[in-house]
Each structure stands twice: as structure tokens, then as C-alpha cells.
Design a protein around this nucleic acid. Structure first.
Lengths: 192, 192
DNA sequence: GCGACAGTAGACAGGTCTGTCCACTGCGTC
DNA sequence: GACGCAGTGGACAGACCTGTCTACTGTCGC
């Protein structure tokens, strides 16, 4: 493989897809706009990815990886068990307050995706991971019913993403942190 | 106006639009499928509504009216202030457990809608109403900071709709009721 | 009977979308 | 210099979508 200095067509396509698909929606953005933004020929897209659906899949996978890395880093940065659980929401609230953040990419992409398709598959992967992480961290923090606490926090996480998207109101960031703390402490306090 | 017994073209169009748009998405369903399901000529659609966008608007307005009526009825059925606030989530959890429920129609429709359009307008209307209602009921229940409690419950409400859609897991209904109770009682208990 | 009216059936225009294909171009390697 | 390779640019096919238009039909009130 040659040592190309300039970014490859693949990288530029993924970057353009990430910006456009996330900002305007997977259905609303056509191939032509993606290749124009990437500065790439249409044939390059189809040689590299094979179809729009595959490009969408890679776009979502990229967001999944970035989200996992961001959350994992925040969790590992905390040392105390309770703080590790709350770190998920610290990470989220940073994202919620970021200008241009438009909520969860998987939720948006799933809105008009056909059941059983690529979008649903990648979304399920991410959501299962997040829910598992919350359950593990809740257990680590000593919650009497880790699954129940994880379910509550999971709803909170989803709600914050939607609210910031629909209401264009970054104040959600503070609410989600406070509410997470409240739910966690209520669960831990209920210990015998 | 003649006393037609059979349902009018307008009614059949709205019923078909409601089913198809809600189940598959506003963008994914074309005009042809709507008129076919309604058993109506294309010209009838355009004579009645003028455009697809207007039909989408009427569809969303119908859902808004139904949601408001359902929630209002549940609230008025309760007499005690705390129960009135929780009635919102009783009503939601009934809906969450209904087969075929696919989450909030406004969230789905907004996913690929252009900013400033009909969809955004009707969604904002509904969301402002719901948030106002939660704030009023929280105040009525005697919460020290009604706005803060309403914000928390609002996140919960959104989260439940998304989770049931994305995970196809009706167990969310129980979680949302329990969590609402927890948040309300925590807020009321913090009274001096 | 007759006109008004609501609705039907379908062809058609014009646009947009995905995906294919072909001839061509730099560039690094041998 | 010849070759392979990644990429370019644009024309094109075929599907689908919204919206328009024309000609027709059944029904009700007068």
C-alpha cells in the first residue's frame, strides 16, 4: 500500500457522509451531494463502498466507534464506582452542549429505515452495548437491582438526545446530569 | 352539505395517511400508496389537501389532537394533585404497551424534515403544550421547583417513546411509571 | 330531466434518486 | 518507457416521486 499523504477518497467520503447525513438525514441527502462535498467522483464511491446503503452503514459504524470511545474514556477517567456510572452522563452532557449536536444519529437514521436493514442492525449493536455498560457500572456501584437502575438511566439518556434535537435547547445538559445523579443516589440509598 | 353515509374521501385519506406514515415514515411512503390504501383518486387528494406536505400536516395535527385528548382525559380522571401529574405517565404507559406503537410520531417525522417546515411547527406546538402541562401539574402537586421537575419528567417521557421504538421492548411501560413516581416523590419530599 | 358536485381513472410532465459505464489522467514502480 | 492502480468526469438508464390535467360517472336537489 502506497504512503499517500493526501487523504484518500474513502476518508473524504466518510467525512462528507458524516457531516451531511448527520445534519440533514440519511434519506434527505443524495449521493450527488456527498460526492460533491467530498470532492470525489461518483465511481469512486461505488468502487469503494458498493452502494449508498453500505456507505450509510460505515457512517453509522464510525459514529458508534466514536461514541463508545468517548464514553469509555470518560468512565475510565473516573475512579470511584459511583463516579464511573455518572461519567456516562458527564460525557453525554458535554456532547449535548456542543453546537451542532442534533441528538443520537441512530435514532435519526432509524426513523425512516426499513426493518431488518443495515441501520437497524448497527443501532441495535450500539444500544445493546450502552445498556450493558450501564448495567455493569450500576452493579459495580453497588446498586441492589442493577438492571432496574440501568433501565431508568437508559430512558434518561435517550430522552436527553431527543429533547435537545427537538427543542434545540442545550439546557438539557444540566437537567440530564442532575437527574442521573438523583436516580443513582435514590437507588444506592435504597440499599439495606 | 349532503348527508353522505359512506366515509368521505377526506376521512379515508387521513385514516390511510395515519396508518402508513406512522408505520413506515413520512418520506418512505409515497402518495400512490396512500391513495391506494384509501381507495381514492389522486385528484381527490390534491383537491382536498393541495399537497403532500399539507396532508402530512393534517396527519400530525390529528395525532396531536388525539394525544392531547388522551392525556387530558387521564389527568382529569384523577383527583389528587400527585395522581394527576402521574396520570400523564399512566396514559403514556398504556400507549407504550399497545401493539404497533412505534414511539412519538413527531420525533419520527422530524427526523428528516427540513427546518422551519410544517412538521417542525406542529411538533413544537405539541411539545410546548406537554411541557406546559407537566409544569402546571407539578406546580399543582406542590413541587418546590415545578419547572425543574417538569424538565426531568419531560426527558423521561421522550426517552420512553424512543426506547420502545428502537428496542421493540414494551417492558419500558413499567419502567417509565416507576421512574416517574420516583422523580415526583423525590421532588415532593425535598419540600421544607 | 338537469345542473351542480364530489369523486374516479389514468396518462403525463418534470424532477430527483441510485447505480452503471466508458474514456481518460496522474503517479509510483519496475 | 511500460504497466498497474486509484481516481476523475460525465453521460446515461431506470426507477420513483410529486403534482397536473382531461374525460368520465354517479348522486342529490330542484
Amino acid at each position: 500500500m502506497p504512503t499517500t499523504e493526501r487523504t484518500s477518497a474513502r476518508e473524504r467520503l466518510l467525512a462528507a457522509a458524516n457531516e451531511l447525513f448527520y445534519a440533514e438525514g440519511v434519506h434527505a441527502v443524495g449521493i450527488d451531494r456527498v460526492i460533491e462535498k467530498a470532492g470525489v467522483a461518483k465511481a469512486s464511491l461505488y468502487n469503494t463502498f458498493g452502494s449508498k446503503d453500505a456507505l450509510v452503514g460505515e457512517y453509522l459504524r464510525g459514529r458508534q466507534d466514536a461514541n463508545r470511545a468517548r464514553i469509555t474514556a470518560a468512565v475510565e477517567h473516573a475512579d470511584e464506582p459511583r463516579a464511573r456510572l455518572l461519567a456516562v452522563f458527564e460525557a453525554q452532557s458535554v456532547q449535548l452542549a456542543t453546537p451542532g449536536y442534533r441528538g443520537c444519529a441512530f435514532v435519526a437514521a432509524s426513523a425512516e429505515a426499513e426493518p431488518g436493514g443495515t441501520v437497524e442492525h448497527v443501532s441495535d449493536e450500539y444500544r445493546a452495548w450502552l445498556r450493558g455498560l450501564l448495567t455493569d457500572l450500576a452493579r459495580g456501584a453497588g446498586a441492589p437491582d442493577p438492571d432496574a437502575l440501568a433501565r431508568q438511566l437508559y430512558l434518561l439518556y435517550d430522552g436527553a438526545g431527543i429533547a435537545v434535537r427537538m427543542d434545540r435547547d442545550p439546557a438539557v445538559a444540566a437537567t440530564v446530569r442532575q437527574t442521573a445523579e438523583l436516580l443513582v443516589d435514590a437507588a444506592l440509598r435504597s440499599m439495606v
